[in-house]
């Protein structure tokens, strides 16, 4: 039985010159990366460009791929750098954006659905009001499903610190969310 091709094996294929492997990596991961950027920037157009840049960088730097790396962390480190570069370029390093049009698709057709959509909108607004570092922890832990250990590896911290900080970030998010609900 030949081992199935996970993202790491695909990266090996890409590193050895099979550029079409990037197509599969893109297909598997672009929605995750796009969602990350949208939640961090609240701007769909910017997120689209940043996502494409991330995968072009993967293509460009595929030669530097080492088999002992985990693709998901590597991917998010590239995505994170891309975001930092973007904010540097626009002189808004991790700044809280003003409210733009929210990106969640409006396909509501009942009061109930409308209420659910509104609560998601408020959640995204609350995410926007978090400190950037806290927002990132929630993004990686809740939306990307990274463990504390994996986050520690991605943001160069230690597992216990990440655990405590993530817990506090969740509490802050809950507070901000409740506050907006009441207002």
């Amino acid at each position: 039985m030949i081992e199935t091709l996970n993202d790491e094996r695909l990266m090996e294929q890409l590193a050895s010159g099979k550029k079409m492997a990037a197509g599969i990596l893109y297909d598997r991961n672009y929605k995750k990366v796009f969602g990350y950027f949208v939640r961090m920037t609240k701007d769909s157009d910017v997120s689209r460009d940043l996502t494409q840049n991330v995968f072009l960088k993967i293509l460009k730097y595929s030669q530097s791929w080492k088999p002992d790396k985990v693709f998901a962390y590597w991917l998010f480190r590239i995505a994170r750098n891309e975001l930092v570069d973007y904010y540097r370029g626009t002189k808004k390093f991790f700044a809280v954006e003003e409210d733009r049009e929210l990106v969640i698709k409006d396909s509501t057709d009942s009061v109930k659905e409308m209420e659910i959509k509104e609560s998601y909108d408020i959640l995204i607004e609350a995410m926007g009001q978090l400190q950037p570092g806290d927002r990132e922890l929630i993004e990686l832990n809740r939306f990307q499903g990274f463990s504390y250990k994996e986050i520690a590896g991605t943001i160069s911290s230690n597992e216990n610190a990440v655990k405590v900080r993530t817990f506090r970030a969740i509490q802050k998010l809950k507070e901000i969310y409740s506050k907006i609900l009441i207002e």
Partner: peptide, 16 residues
Amino acid sequence: EIEPPSGMKEEFMMML
């Protein structure tokens, strides 16, 4: 999950 804009994947495949 936030739905990416249409044509985004095609755009990348073209670049590729």
